[in-house]
Amino acid sequence: MNQLVSLQLKNVSRSFGEVDVLRRISLEISRGEFVAVVGPSGCGKTTLLNLLSGYDRPTSGTIESSGRRRMIYQQDGLFPWLTVNENIGLGLRQLHGEREREGAVTDLLRLIRLEGFERHYPHQLSGGMRQRVELARALAGESDILLMDEPFSALDYLTRMQMRRELARILAERPRTVVLVTHDIEEAAQLADRVVVLSERPAQIRDQLRIAAPRPRNLTDDEVVQAIHRILTVLGIEHEPERATEMERTL
């Protein structure tokens, strides 16, 4: 596999018994690229991430990856019996030396702007703060690939918007290859270099869109609005303007 490629799927299919979930997915994700995967609920997005993380194996096809992979789960994945410090410390277990680890945790706390909360337990934090701790834990110890499964879907709208900014900022400081699964199309358009749109189950890649604008992007930036429109069009929810005018003409 090419040095510049982080993850590579060739003709990957996955079925559970009779149920075909993923069908012949081919995808190449470059080092440092931010790919968002959108698709209808139940189409197989989590299944795809489980394959990418190595937790699950494809029924057919091959997957290659280079680098340490870390997953942020759809469910709350912080250990509630550990403090913020200890949770982040989990990501640093391979680091030797108390000093080194403490230094790394302090840096990560500053990165996620949670200084002063190191001794708090997850249940004492807000949803957005918990997600930032998950992010810090996944970034710790020089991971290379972040796999995120709808990390912000449990947050309220405003917090979600803030978390997008935070994620863009954090990634600017600690670049990673990212695969973000979401059904929030705005989120995909605002964050990703490339958006992969999956079809209903059995999921196939329906379309891929590149968004070249640099991050951080405003939700109302022209590129973002256009991207949202394009994704919605691929999903068959919005129509091309020409067709709209056509419809008006026929009326």
Binding site: S53, Y55, R70, M71, Y73, Q75, D76, G77, F79, L90, G91, R93, Q94, R137
Partner: peptide, 13 residues
């Protein structure tokens, strides 16, 4: 919750 065991596996416990 199964997710705790997934996380444990991910972080080498």
């Amino acid at each position: 919750p199964a997710v705790y065991f997934r996380v444990a596996e991910d972080y080498g416990l």
